[in-house]
Design a protein around this nucleic acid. Structure first.
Length: 303
DNA sequence: CCAGCCGCCAGGTTTACCTCA
DNA sequence: AATGAGGTAAACCTGGCGGCT
């Protein structure tokens, strides 16, 4: 049975992620911290999940024993004739623990070979004759399996051992497969999120570049006007600048704005019009935090 | 307090499978 | 129909971290 990626439900969940991101983007709330990509929500969900199940993923011996006895009671991807692989099934992620210990890798590889055989037999019903000597035979999850995994992932993107076991039993997969699927799914989510963030940042950069270009052009025009006041006398300025004499912040307003009368500006040799100190009404600096430069002490002697 | 062990996860890689030109 | 390129996803590897003993 062929399974298209569209059938796996991945696109659905990723789109929902994208939608969420776009919603946040539209409201200009982009969390640029790398951890926002995955870590934060994962950790939040993980904690809530642990709250629900009342235990962390760190299995105590008691918990491991419980899991093993639980395993003994169910038939999770086990062919009747197969060796007892509860250790692999009950304690997840054998790779990291075994790979770091010398002499255990071959053991794990053997387990993987056995698992693959089991896996193939269980998930696809392939006969033993089709099992080649290649241990790393992959198989695609069925549509239903992927859908259930996706639903589970939407609910919580990390699993504790109990949940992993239950899900594996439900899907007729090995717990290791469920674990790997969740790991890969988290990686895919993060990758997608990173792409969305990157796209948003690109747009922000473009907007800022345009704004910068526009302001540079305006600065050039103003400098030209300042150097040639006679020339300025015969033309209306593109914009009117008003400067706060106390904090020296400059507000830009259109020439039609009544806050700075063109006649007043025309009588001066500069387009910068002083205003009464700190009587900002509706000007940009009125709401912006004022960061006085060190020499502002000269303008604002302490009383 | 420290060391060793264990389990989990993130990030990266490998590889089987699938689609399409 | 055959085939090679490219994409996707399952499986794997490695290193780090935290909890436990």
């Amino acid at each position: 049975m062929m399974v298209r990626k569209d059938d796996l439900g991945l696109s659905l969940s990723l789109n929902s992620t994208e939608i969420q991101q776009q919603q946040s983007s539209s409201s200009l709330q982009l969390n640029l911290m790398p951890s926002s990509v995955s870590a934060s929500p994962f950790m939040v969900q993980k904690s809530s999940w642990n709250e629900v199940f009342g235990s962390s993923d760190r299995g105590t011996d008691m918990y491991r024993n419980e899991t093993r006895s639980f395993l003994r009671g169910i038939d999770v991807n086990r062919m009747p004739s197969n060796v007892d692989c509860e250790e692999e099934a009950g304690v997840s992620s054998p790779n990291s623990t075994l790979s770091s210990v010398s002499g255990k890798r071959s053991e794990r590889e053997i387990l993987n070979c056995e698992d693959n055989e089991i896996e193939r037999a269980c998930s696809r019903g392939i006969s033993d004759e089709e099992d080649g000597e290649n241990c790393r035979k992959k198989l695609r999850l069925s549509k239903d399996q992927s859908a259930i995994l996706e639903d589970s992932f939407k609910e919580h993107n990390t699993l504790n051992p109990k949940q992993k076991q239950a899900l594996a039993k439900q899907l007729n997969l090995r717990p290791r497969q469920v674990e790997v699927w969740f790991q890969n799914r988290r990686a895919r989510t993060k990758l997608k999120q990173t792409e969305v963030d990157c796209e948003y940042l690109k747009r922000c950069c473009e907007n800022l570049t345009d704004e910068n270009r526009r302001l540079q052009k305006e600065v050039q025009e103003l400098r030209a006007l300042k150097l040639s006041p006679q020339f300025y006398m015969h033309m209306t300025p593109p914009t009117t600048l008003t400067m706060c004499p106390s904090c020296e912040r400059v507000a830009v307003s259109s020439s039609s704005n009544g806050s700075a009368a063109p006649s007043t500006v025309a009588t001066t040799t500069s387009a910068v019009t002083p205003v009464v100190p700190h009587q900002h009404r509706g000007l940009p600096w009125a709401t912006a935090p004022v960061h006085h430069r060190p020499f502002d002490v000269l303008h604002h002697p302490r009383s």
